[in-house]
């Protein structure tokens, strides 16, 4: 799981152009939106595309993102359970 979390952080940084950030700067349990990483609604859509592209996970209901994108740890757990590639 630690390996997946680290890789996921790298992919988030790349997908969202978080230029000045390193994986080490992202807390596993910190909120991705609002106070945490401060991501916005376009970033959420980009994360949905990223999950489909890299892990073959297609979210049927975008509202699911609210739960899944709570933190990198929650996201990694969801990916581990649902990935098809």
């Amino acid at each position: 799981m630690d390996e997946l979390i680290y890789k996921l952080k790298q992919q988030i940084i790349e997908a969202l152009n978080l230029e000045d950030m390193k994986p080490e700067d992202i807390d596993d349990n910190a909120s991705l939106f609002g106070e945490g990483l401060g991501l916005d609604s376009i970033d959420a859509l980009e994360l949905i595309v990223m999950m489909e592209k890299n892990y073959g996970i297609k979210l049927q209901d975008p509202a699911q993102g609210k739960e899944i994108f709570k933190s990198v740890a929650v996201m990694a757990d969801f990916i581990a359970k649902n990935r098809t590639k």
Binding site: A15, L16, N17, I42, D43, L45, E46, V49, E52, K53
Partner: peptide, 9 residues
Amino acid sequence: YFPSPAAFV
């Protein structure tokens, strides 16, 4: 085929 929302905006 992965349309990028961040590019689209």
